[in-house]
């Protein structure tokens, strides 16, 4: 995609505005961290023939900018709370990604497509890495080579029984067979692990859906159609009782009407037709509520991203009081 002159101008203007903002007041988009020295004594291990040693590293925890300012004000030579290049670069990259995705609201453009390419690569590798460390290592390698896994990465790994070892050998074979899908001739054999996956999923889903959906939801629908509510004195409160009873009646009637609409073995005529029609109304209300709920969820996410840009990156707002000092200095600079 070729960059048009308009895009170059817009990019330059945005860069100039950010540049101005970066040097106004307390600046913007900086991250500070506090160091904590970690030192652990490792005792000698006679079995492995290792001597006692000490393992040390520095842990860095992010702190609000005001903590850095306070530390600097107390002691300008301090090195405990410092500027973090890694996190600051990360913050700016995150801001770029956020703006690049938002730029799609205008139209497709190179910044958006770049970010899209990044997320495809990163998310695929992310899932793979988690699958390796959280499943392959503890389950598969932990069963097949327990000593190696215990001495390498998971000392707390519990011993696996013979059934688990056999099952993991079986899983490994099926896993390798699954990779045959990449082969032009042996693709048919990848159907075996797929069959295992489908069988296990089918067996699991029958139990879980019948137990937690069909039975639990049906039981929850058996509500008293007259639900008495009492006040502080223990007497029956008229209006709360009416409202609670009406709510229960509406729920029971609604479930029955919706199920009637889903029941296609009987023609939707007469009483069944009327019930099905009421069921459609209930479903429309449900879809409307789901739509409103979804939009509100997305708007909340949008607000969070805008807050990230204006608070964490541009330092224009400070709802959590993270940079009281910066905000004041910016005001005085203006």
């Amino acid at each position: 995609m070729k960059l048009s002159r308009g895009w170059i101008v817009v990019s330059l203007v945005v860069a100039a505005l950010i540049g101005v903002r970066a040097f106004t007041g307390g600046g913007m988009g900086r991250v500070y961290v506090k160091s904590e020295a970690v030192s652990i004594d490792v005792p000698a291990d006679a079995a492995k023939g290792t001597a006692a040693t000490k393992v040390e590293w520095t842990a860095w925890a992010q702190v609000p900018p005001r903590v850095y300012k306070a530390a600097e004000a107390t002691n300008p030579a301090q090195t405990e709370v410092v500027f973090s290049w890694g996190r600051t670069i990360g913050l700016w990259i995150a801001a770029f990604f956020t703006l690049a995705i938002f730029s799609f609201l205008y139209r497709d453009n190179p910044a958006y497509r770049f970010t899209e390419a990044v997320i495809v690569g990163v998310s695929a590798a992310y899932a793979m890495v988690l699958g390796f460390w959280e499943t392959v290592v503890p389950k598969l390698l932990g069963a097949l080579t327990p000593d190696f896994v215990k001495g390498w990465v998971l000392p707390s790994l519990s011993d696996q029984g013979p059934a688990q070892v056999v099952a993991m050998c079986f899983a490994l074979v099926l896993g390798v067979l699954l990779l045959m899908r990449l082969s032009p001739k042996g693709g048919w054999i990848s159907m075996w692990p797929l069959a295992f996956i489908i069988g296990v999923t089918a067996g699991l889903k029958i139990v879980s859906h019948v137990e937690s959906d069909l039975i639990a939801q049906s039981v929850a629908t058996f509500k008293p159609l007259v639900a008495f509510k009492t006040d502080a004195t223990g007497a029956v409160a008229a209006w709360p009782t009416v409202w609670a009873s009406l709510a229960n009646i509406l729920v029971v009637a609604g479930v029955l009407c919706c199920l009637t609409y889903f029941f296609f073995s009987v023609e939707h005529k007469g009483l069944v037709g009327k019930g099905a029609r009421v069921g459609i109304w209930y479903l429309m209300i449900t879809f409307g509520a789901a739509f409103g709920f979804t939009v509100m969820g997305r708007v909340a996410l949008l607000a969070a991203r805008v807050e990230f840009l204006f608070d964490d990156w541009l330092w224009l707002i400070d709802p959590a009081g993270k940079r009281v000092v910066e905000t004041m200095s910016m005001l005085t600079a203006w």
């Binding site: 489908i198 889903k205 029958i206 939801q217 709510a247 609604g254 479930v255 919706c258 199920l259 209930y282």
Partner: peptide, 30 residues
């Protein structure tokens, strides 16, 4: 009120329908 009454009823019927569908399809496979 809409979320607690109408939405609950509609969603409950949908969930029951899905559960029946999943159970039937899974049984056909098994």
């Amino acid at each position: 009120y809409i979320m607690q009454v109408f939405n609950t009823a509609g969603n409950r019927a949908i969930i029951i329908g899905i559960a029946l569908g999943v159970a039937a399809t899974s049984l056909r496979i098994l």
